[in-house]
Amino acid sequence: MAAVLDQPLEKLTTGDRISIYQPEQAGLIYPELPTFATHAEHRQHLKERLVAACRAFALQGFDYGFAGHLTVRDPEFPDLYWTNPMCVHFSQVKVSNLILADHEGKVVEGQYAINRAGFVLHAAVHEAHPDIVAMCHAHTTYGTAFAALGKPLDPISQDAAAFYEDHVVIKSEAGQVAVEKKAGPKVADWFKGVKAAIHQNHGLLTASRHSIESAAFWFIALERCCQQQLMVEATGSKPVFVSPERSRYSREHVGSEYIGWLHFQPIWDQLVKTQPDMFD
């Protein structure tokens, strides 16, 4: 059997490109980041993508009663954020029933009530971190189960390596429903420079400084990675970890905010074709 050589990784150069995945060849069909002429145009875009993220969560089976909240900061009024309405299934969220709220939990636009737990956590993160534009949380099966272990995700795959040194385990307020305002800042403090958190005895949270699409995709990815690690651990065998060097390499090239946005684009296209009522 031939020896496996673990050679040092070469630094990939992207030139003027955001990612190595952007084609060097001109004229090919490839998703491009949007630009906006007005705040209104930008706002409509964000609302549509927020709805799509909710619909994507529905397709993934992330619903659990009224639990689960996704938010995105308004482009014109950064102290306000858009979120899904209370007690509306992810599959029924649409542009017309979104609500706009402030950091105190007051609904300033929309007819539905706000999810208090969502307001306590998300508003605190948005207020404490002006660079964070979007956040996602849901009570998922595997993420909640993994959160009971109170430990970080292991780099057992390329997918898991996308979260290497880019997520935290939050033990503050573990297992206690976040309905008191004091709980929010305790969680918000942990979101400095990371895109994801495992809240012990609670579940998963993701935050993005790029887009709601990125926050939504990395939530979907984190849930999947939790499922995979639980499956591997159930075998009783110790998995082989991706080395720290290769984990950081993978995180750099397949774990960025931009890559999260890019991963969401086929999800968006599929939803546009199959669920046009989300624009109602």
Rank of each mutant, 00 (worst) to 15 (best):
V4N: 09
D6Q: 13
D6V: 13
Q7F: 10
Q7A: 10
D16C: 08
S19T: 14
Y21I: 05
Y21W: 13
Q22D: 09
P23Y: 10
A26S: 10
L33Q: 14
T38I: 08
H39R: 07
H39C: 05
A40W: 04
A40C: 06
H42A: 10
Q44S: 15
R55K: 12
F57K: 00
Q60F: 09
F66R: 08
A67W: 13
G68T: 04
T71I: 03
T71C: 04
D74I: 07
D79H: 15
T83W: 04
N84K: 01
S91A: 15
V95F: 09
S96D: 14
L100F: 04
E104L: 09
E104K: 14
E104V: 01
G110I: 09
A113H: 09
A113R: 13
A117H: 03
F119R: 00
L121I: 15
V125D: 07
H129S: 08
H129C: 07
P130A: 13
D131K: 12
I132C: 12
A134F: 06
M135G: 12
M135A: 12
C136R: 03
H137Y: 12
T140Q: 06
T144V: 08
A145P: 05
F146V: 09
F146L: 11
P152W: 11
P152F: 11
D159C: 04
K171G: 07
K171C: 06
E173T: 08
E180T: 08
E180L: 13
A188M: 11
F191A: 13
K192Q: 14
V194H: 11
A197V: 08
H199C: 06
G203M: 04
I212T: 05
S214H: 01
F217L: 04
I220G: 00
L230Y: 00
L230D: 01
M231S: 03
E233P: 00
S237M: 09
P239N: 01
G255M: 05
S256Q: 10
I259F: 09
F264V: 06
P266T: 11
P266W: 04
T274M: 07
P276D: 06
